[in-house]
C-alpha cells in the first residue's frame, strides 16, 4: 500500500460526470463536519484565551503555547507518556516475540494456542484496566496481597510508580495478542532452507535465532514498534481513566489524558486546544514515519 500514489490510474474507467460526486459525497460531508471543522476549531482555539464559562474570549497569539512549554506539568506529562509508551511497547514486543517463537516451533496445537492467546485483543482497554485493578487492589487483590506478604508495600492509589506499573501491565496484556499474530506471520515467512542450512553447519537454535531469524524479522519488529507506540499514545485512555484517572497526583497522566482533563475537568479550553495541536503534529510525524517505512517494505 502506498499513500502517496494518489494519482494511480485505472486504465479503464466509467465516463460519468455526476455519479462520482454523489458517491464521494457521504464521506466528504462526514469528514468535513466531524473532522476538518473540529480540527480547524482546535487550531483557532489554541490562539485564544477563553473564560471558564465560555462566554468571552480574546486573541492571545502564541501565549497558550508559550505557557504550555513553560509549564513543568506539561513536561511531566510528556515524560509520563514516554515512560508509559516505551514500557508498553517493549514489554509487549518482548513477551509476544517469545511466545511467537515458541508457537512457531510446536507442530501440534498451533491453532489452539493461537486462539487462546489472541482473544484479549477484543477486550476494551477500560475493561482490561478494571480486570487488573481487581488483581492488584491493595486491600484484597490476590497479587497485591501476595506482594505484601513478601514485603512489597503495594498500593497503587498512593504510589505513583506502582500506579504506572499497573497501567503498563493492563495495556501490555491487551496488546500481546496483536504483536503475537504479526510476529507469528513474520516467523512463518522466514525461509526454512536458511534455518536448515544453518543447523547443518552446526548452529544451535539460540544462535540461529539471533543471527538469522531476528534480523529477518526486523521489518516486522519496527512496524510493530510504531504501531505499539501509537496504541500506547492514543488507545490506552480507557485503561488510565478506569483505573488511576491519571493519579496519584499526575503520575499516570499521559498527554492524551491531560488534553481531556484540562479541557473537560479543568475547563481550560485554550490550553487543551494547544495541546491538541501539539498532539496532531506528533501524530503527523508518526504517520509519515509509518508510511515511509511501509513504502520501503514494498520495495523489499
Amino acid at each position: 500500500m502506498n499513500l502517496w500514489q494518489g494519482a494511480v490510474l485505472m486504465s479503464v474507467y466509467f465516463p460519468h460526470k455526476k455519479l462520482p460526486y454523489l458517491l464521494v459525497l457521504p464521506q466528504l460531508v462526514i469528514t468535513l463536519i466531524f473532522f476538518l471543522w473540529p480540527a480547524e476549531q482546535a487550531f483557532e482555539q489554541a490562539f485564544y484565551q477563553e473564560d471558564a464559562f465560555g462566554l468571552s474570549r480574546e486573541f492571545v497569539g502564541f501565549d497558550n503555547f508559550v505557557y504550555l512549554f513553560n509549564d513543568p506539568q506539561y513536561y511531566k506529562s510528556i515524560w509520563v507518556t514516554l515512560v508509559f509508551s516505551f514500557s508498553v511497547a517493549f514489554s509487549g514486543l518482548a513477551i509476544a516475540l517469545w511466545l511467537a517463537v515458541m508457537a512457531d516451533r510446536v507442530i501440534r496445537g498451533k491453532l489452539t494456542y493461537q486462539t487462546l492467546l489472541v482473544w484479549p485483543y477484543a477486550v476494551a482497554p477500560a475493561l482490561a484496566g478494571v480486570l487488573w485493578w481487581l488483581l492488584f487492589d491493595p486491600s484484597m487483590g490476590p497479587i497485591a496481597l501476595w506482594l505484601q506478604y513478601f514485603g512489597v508495600d503495594w498500593n497503587h492509589f498512593l504510589n505513583g510508580d506502582q500506579a504506572m506499573t499497573l497501567v503498563v501491565i493492563s495495556a501490555t496484556w491487551k496488546q500481546i495478542s496483536y504483536n503475537f499474530l504479526f510476529f507469528l506471520a513474520g516467523l512463518q515467512a522466514v525461509p526454512r532452507s536458511l534455518i536448515e542450512a544453518a543447523s547443518i553447519d552446526g548452529a544451535s537454535p539460540f544462535k540461529r535465532f539471533w543471527t538469522i531469524v531476528f534480523p529477518l524479522l526486523s521489518p516486522t519488529t519496527f512496524f510493530l514498534l510504531v504501531i505499539n507506540l501509537v496504541y500506547a499514545f492514543f488507545d490506552t485512555f480507557g485503561v488510565i481513566d478506569a483505573t488511576t484517572q491519571g493519579g496519584p497526583g499526575v503520575s499516570t497522566a499521559t498527554m492524551v489524558y491531560k488534553v481531556f482533563n484540562d479541557g473537560f475537568i479543568g475547563l481550560d479550553m485554550g490550553s487543551s486546544a494547544a495541546q491538541s495541536v501539539v498532539l496532531m503534529f506528533l501524530v503527523g510525524v508518526m504517520t509519515v514515519i509509518q508510511f515511509r517505512y511501509i513504502e520501503r517494505k514494498v520495495e523489499y
Binding site: 494518489g6 460526486y21 458517491l23 480540527a39 476549531q41 488534553v259 479550553m269 491538541s276
Partner: peptide, 28 residues
C-alpha cells in the same frame, strides 16, 4: 473507477483523517 475534476482533492480531504484519532481532537 471514475475520473472527475477535484478527484485528487477529494482523495486528500478523506485521507488526511488517517492521521488523527478522535482522542486527539476530543474537545473541539
Amino acid at each position: 473507477f471514475f475520473r472527475f475534476p477535484f478527484r485528487g482533492a477529494c482523495f486528500w480531504v478523506i485521507f488526511i483523517t488517517l492521521m488523527l484519532p478522535v482522542e486527539v481532537r476530543i474537545v473541539p
